[in-house]
Design a protein around this nucleic acid. Structure first.
Lengths: 354, 354
DNA sequence: ATTGGCACTCATATACTTTGAGTGCCAATT
DNA sequence: AATTGGCACTCAAAGTATATGAGTGCCAAT
């Protein structure tokens, strides 16, 4: 059962107007805004039917109409016209993401801050890494009882740890250990670090002081830490700009929910196209039932995917937000890719010094 | 000009009561709360004088009294009785800070979260590092055009970077470069990385491809990044629990001020004993003029100092907050110190695996 | 110096009224 | 059959008036 063209235009007008004013929209306002060549009485008849069908509702008998979740859903799926990003914002995004080649985490965070600024909503980012393995071990002998363990992961990130030992080790012991690790423990997943393998390694280098175990522990810890997802939140205070959060109770509930990044790290990065919109009760979390979430996916290289999204009231300019997020996500993907290929980093910077 | 003992007791009673109820305190309530053996009329006379002297004020003629900044200041400096930390909280702190030896940054963050939970106010932490120098360079040859640079700083932290080069390098070139860096660039401050020194190094290893510069750039970047202060914020949403921030405008202003960690990274870690209290307009920042900040110092090892503090309304249980913060700061200092001495890290953890 | 007593103040609460935007429905119009 | 002008009706929000009472300041008596 499809809506008539006119009903669609009226529904759109209600939503556009309501998003702007945060006030229930009356029949007169719709005639003004939609440009339809009908009287307000006609619109009233249509409104009554749209209400009957569940796309709109009335806060009270003598008030205008407000979109329901069903109304927003139809609007997002079919009705809304794709807005484009204001030139000014596009420029800001281009500029901000291009500037300063930096670490991926920082770039993502910067993108989050930028998105919060441009949308005026809190922004979350999620980066999920595929399980990593270690492709190279280097043990550096610093002094008799200090070593540095350097791990090169298969996503080309590097992790290190300084270990102070309660005993002294010889330089060649370290070299042997390093060799064993590079032959036995590269490319292995977490489960493949079997006790058998570890004790074999221990014996082969003649380690009876637990040094092998310590390096293994660090390797496992690193792998565990690097895998999984990291979520950040930017511009949490933006929530308070919007009238639906003028009640401190509501604001606090959502705010503290968002502050716990664990709540978002589980969000799926797949199963949707560019943009995913979750409206009100479509969100699973109780704390989000009155809010909407708009997510855009970005590509973090090496097959890794990330999300950048806003959290706001259901009354939201979905089209504008989606457009901005998509633009930022694409920009971020590109910037991260460029960052990967960069050659000698920081070179240019130094040359500018004098 | 000193206040009479009775005036002091009355002032204390007003503050204690006001902190509890957030309502102006009347003469009757004071008689009840203070246990003074006088009539409310007598208290009224005293109140009038305390108001005259600027320690109290009246929101309007027929209301009770509210402490002024001057009143709070006297209270904090001389009047308040040192509260002790509830056993329950002390246990929680001990438990939380002792658990899991982890990275200093994480420990500090955990302490911040804990403090926010226990005080019900937003908590900021600031860690200021003394300028660091690099005490050892290691260059690892990964493959023909990939190297890893590992820097050991004099605070025993380790930084690294993978560099992909647009040309190939020989293993022994890397070794030479490493040697030169260890002789020429260790223990040097940022300014001492002179162009003369750099080009000398370049010549001595026969580097005409900018590799030396790249490593220098990374070293400088690392030093710049490690120096300076890092600030974090925990429990920002706690702000909204307090009636003085029921106005979204006010809450937003303070919240967004706090979210920018730059605003706090400049806070001095010296010039006070254990605890520093800044009440209302004693704060320099315009956004903090209606709020109070209570800071405790902790010791981050290697002569580094940090701050942990809460931000809340001027109506705050200073005594309880100060006690908790001090307890947490001391616990954190101790935990960080223990963490420094730990030997093979992660060893115990591995042993528990099966 | 302290106190009971009393007139006074004023924010807050409560009850009542007014206003006006918006509706639903119907008879007249196209 | 769809559209429209007209009109009675509804009800939140804003405005007005009144009552309440917590708290004060001051004074005469203790």
């Amino acid at each position: 059962m499809d809506l008539s063209e006119r009903k669609k235009r009226i529904l759109s007008a209600v939503i556009d107007e309501y998003v702007k004013t945060a006030e229930p929209v009356g029949s007169k306002a719709i005639v003004g805004a939609s440009g339809l060549k009908v009287s307000s009485a006609t619109v009233r008849n249509e409104l009554a039917e749209l209400t009957e069908l569940g796309y709109l509702e009335q806060p009270h008998t003598s008030a205008g109409r407000v979109p329901t979740v069903k109304g927003y859903r139809l609007y997002v799926n079919e009705l809304m016209i794709q807005k484009s990003v204001p030139e000014e914002d596009a420029d800001a995004i281009d500029k901000n993401l291009r500037s300063g080649l930096s670490k991926p985490d920082k770039m993502t965070e910067a993108a989050g801050r930028l998105a919060a600024e441009l949308t005026d909503y809190p922004v979350l980012t999620v980066t999920r890494s595929a399980p990593v393995t270690i492709k190279r071990y280097d043990l550096i002998h610093v002094d008799a009882n200090t070593i540095i363990v350097v791990l090169l992961l298969d996503d080309n990130s590097v992790k290190n740890k300084l270990m102070t030992l309660p005993f002294s080790v010889e330089k060649n012991m370290i070299a042997r250990l390093s060799a064993v690790f590079n032959t036995s423990f590269t490319g292995k997943s977490e489960e493949q670090f079997s006790p058998v393998l570890i004790s074999a390694a221990e014996r082969s280098v003649g380690d009876n002081m637990g040094l092998t175990s310590a390096v293994v522990a660090f390797a496992l810890e690193t792998m565990a830490e690097t895998a999984g997802a990291r979520a950040t939140l930017s511009g949490g205070s933006k929530l308070l700009s919007h009238p639906e959060f003028s009640d401190p109770e509501k604001a606090k509930s959502l705010m503290s929910y968002m502050s716990d990044s664990n709540h978002f790290s589980g969000l799926a990065t797949s199963g949707f196209d560019d943009i995913k919109v979750m409206i009100g009760p479509e969100n699973i979390a109780e704390e989000l039932k009155d809010s909407s979430v708009v997510l855009a996916r970005y590509d973090a290289g090496d097959g890794m995917q990330g999300l950048i999204g806003v959290v706001g009231p259901t009354r939201m300019d979905y089209s504008a937000v989606a457009a901005k997020l998509k633009y930022i996500a694409d920009g971020l993907s590109k910037a991260l890719a460029e960052n990967k290929d960069k050659s000698i980093p920081g070179f240019g910077k130094l040359m500018l010094r004098d």
